[in-house]
């Protein structure tokens, strides 16, 4: 929709050009969220497209995604076959509520900084043990673990004006086996729960990432494969009832129920 309060578009060559952050500024990536709702407190959009960041750089140590990498570019990217968990890229792209048309503009970074519980790029990068590079307006770039970035429904650790620059996914995580489970109330709709398990081979521990069901990602680390009871206890301990999401896309009780159900399936699948 028209954002009628916007008075200016800035198109910097480098993000350093935007030093003095002001109220009413917003970084513009794909625009697929910004243009989907009135933004009455925003008057200036700062275009990230002109920064020309390289979308994807892949090397032996892992993959570096620019925050401005479009979902369509991500979906078209196929990591080396030995990185088995690389298949999670496709799974998580298909977990978007939005269609492939939106993917032509929407970005990985945009989905992450929106920090909605059902954001599949959060699920993907947390499960794959990613690290984000953040660019504050003053000072040096800093790194945060993907698992620590989202702090609540539509809330994260970004400081005022701080920009998500890139996402690093380590090859060690990509080399793991994985199991993926997802549920939604309408066919191909928004995720009500999205669980990913990974396990290093041949005898690594289970890493279970719970997203969509909870207001922020929850990650459980096990030394080996837990028993069913250990898994339940770990979920009980990590997820208080209060952080199961309550919205029109699923009730907390249902999300909780499915979390246990799918976690057990993942345990069995990766423990086999």
């Amino acid at each position: 929709m028209n954002l009628n309060t916007i008075r200016e578009i800035k198109r910097p060559r480098s993000s350093d050009e935007i030093r003095h952050w002001q109220d009413g500024y917003a970084w513009l990536a794909g625009g697929t969220w910004l243009f989907s709702e009135p933004q009455i407190h925003t008057h200036t959009l700062i275009d990230l497209e002109t920064l020309g960041w390289r979308a994807i750089a892949s090397g032996p140590g892992g993959i570096e995604f620019a925050a401005t990498c479009k979902i369509a570019e991500l979906y078209a990217f196929h990591p080396p076959a030995e990185w088995k968990a690389g298949q999670l890229i496709g799974e998580c792209c298909r977990a978007f509520l939005s269609s492939f048309k939106i993917w032509n503009e929407a970005t990985i970074g945009g989905n992450i900084v929106m920090s909605l519980p059902a954001g599949p790029m959060i699920s993907l990068t947390v499960a794959l043990e990613g690290t984000y590079t953040l660019l504050p307006r003053d000072g040096e770039a800093r790194e945060v673990r993907a698992a620590d970035f989202v702090t609540g429904n539509h809330a994260n650790v970004l400081e005022r004006g701080e920009l998500l620059r890139s996402i690093h996914i380590p090859g060690t995580a990509l080399a793991k086996s994985f199991a993926f489970r997802r549920s939604e109330l309408t066919h191909l709709g928004r995720s009500s729960v999205l669980l990913i398990g990974t396990r290093g081979e041949p005898v690594g521990g289970l890493l279970l990432t719970i997203t969509a069901a909870t207001v922020k990602p929850i990650q459980l680390t096990f030394d080996g494969i837990p028993t069913a009871a250990q898994l339940c206890n770990a979920i009980d301990a990590a997820i208080p009832e209060s952080i199961y999401l309550d919205d029109v896309h699923g009730s907390p009780a249902h999300r909780r129920h499915l979390t246990y159900h799918y976690a057990e399936q993942i345990r069995q699948e990766l423990g086999a």
Binding site: M1, I9, L28, G30, G31, T32, F35, S36, L45, D47, E49, K101, I102, N104, E105
Partner: peptide
């Protein structure tokens, strides 16, 4: 693309 989400200046 969904043109309602596409910034016209682009």
């Amino acid at each position: 693309v969904h043109s309602c989400l596409y910034p016209a200046f682009r």
